[in-house]
Design a protein around this nucleic acid. Structure first.
Lengths: 167, 167
DNA sequence: TGCAAGCGATTAACATGTTAACTATACTCA
DNA sequence: TGAGTATAGTTAACATGTTAATCGCTTGCA
C-alpha cells in the first residue's frame, strides 16, 4: 500500500560510530530488541518442545488447530504467524504423521480445511501442561504486571504499524 | 515479583477449545506477540534492504562491523544475535563479495577477526540513511515516548530471563 | 457468456535457524 | 608435561523464512 514514509531523516543524532556517525546505536534497533526478547523466551520453550519431538512452528500450528474444529489454510497461516510455504510444508509433514487431516471447503474449491486428528489432539494434550508451566515460570520471574504492560505495548505496536498482521 | 497470572485460566473465557480447556488463549503467547511486533516492523525494513541487495541478517552483521574496527566471530555473533553457523555462511558470502576481510587474532589462534572492507563500509553508508528514515517513521507513528517504554520493558525482559543474551 | 483479474494453495530456489558433530587451538591441573 | 576438558569456528542435515512463479478455482464485469 504505497505510503512512503522514508523521506525525513533528522540527520545529526549520535556522534557514535567512527564508521559514519550516522546510524543510531546498535542497541537501539527495535527489531533486534524484539528478537532478543523472543530468543530469551524461546530458549526455554525450545528444549521442552524438542523433548516432545516438535518444533516451535509446528507447536504454533497445533495450538491454533486445537482451539477450533477446522480452519482453512489462510486463516491458519494468519493465526500461527506463518507464511504460506512454511505452513504447506508443516501440514504435509503432519499429514504423514497422522496428526492433521484435510477436507474440502464447503463452497470454495480453492480452500482446504485442516483439523487435528485424535492423535494430533493427544499430542496437544501432552505438550500443553509443559507449555503452561514454562509460561507461569516466566510470569513469576518477570512480574505479572510488567508482563501485562508488555503485552499491551506489543499489541499497540503491531496495530499502530498496521500491516494487518495485527488482526 | 511473583504473581503468577498463568494459573488462573478463568476456564470460562472462551467456549472454544473443546480441545482441553487448558492452554491459555492463543493471543496470550508472548513469543507469538513478540514475533508479530517484529514482523510488523520488519515488513517495512525488508523491502528497503532488498533494494540494496542484502537480507536482514546481513544488514545486522554490517551494522555491527561498522561500529568497530574489527571483531572476532564470537563477539560478532553475540552482537548481531546470530548463531555461529549462520554467521559463518554470511561471512563466507561477504568475503566473496569483498565486503568483509578476515585476519588472525593476536594471541588466540582459534579466533578470527573480521572487519569491513572499504566496499563494505560504502555499502553501510548507502543503507544507513534509509534505515534511519524508516526508523524515524516508526517512531513518529507509534509515539516516541511509548517506543522508549517498550525498549525499556524489552531490555528488562531479556535481562530478567537471564540467558545472558541480554548482554 | 466469457474473459481478465484476483485469490488459495503449492512448488521452487536460495538464505537463515537449529542442533549435532567435528577440527584445531587453548586451558587446567594432577 | 601431558591427558582431559573447554572454546572458536566450521560443516552437515534438516526445518523454516522469504520471494517469485505456477496452477486451479472464483469473481467481477463488459
Amino acid at each position: 500500500m504505497s505510503a512512503s514514509p522514508a523521506r525525513r531523516v533528522g540527520a545529526e543524532r549520535l556522534p557514535t560510530t567512527r564508521a559514519s556517525g550516522f546510524l543510531r546505536d546498535i542497541e537501539l534497533s527495535l527489531p533486534l530488541q524484539l528478537l532478543k526478547a523472543r530468543e530469551a523466551a524461546m530458549a526455554r520453550f525450545r528444549p521442552m518442545l524438542r523433548s516432545h519431538g516438535i518444533t516451535e512452528q509446528q507447536w504454533r500450528v497445533i495450538r491454533v488447530l486445537a482451539a477450533d474444529e477446522a480452519l482453512d489454510g489462510r486463516e491458519l497461516a494468519r493465526r500461527s504467524i506463518l507464511l504460506a510455504p512454511s505452513l504447506t510444508r508443516i501440514l504435509q509433514y503432519f499429514e504423514k504423521q497422522n496428526l492433521v487431516k484435510r477436507s474440502a471447503h464447503a463452497s470454495d474449491q480453492r480452500r482446504v480445511m485442516f483439523a487435528l486428528t485424535a492423535r494430533g489432539r493427544r499430542l496437544f494434550d501432552q505438550v500443553a501442561p509443559d507449555a503452561e508451566a514454562l509460561y507461569a515460570a516466566i510470569a513469576d520471574q518477570f512480574g505479572g504486571q510488567k508482563l501485562k504492560t508488555l503485552y499491551k505495548l506489543l499489541a499497540e505496536f503491531s496495530t499502530a504499524l498496521g500491516s494487518e498482521a495485527g488482526e
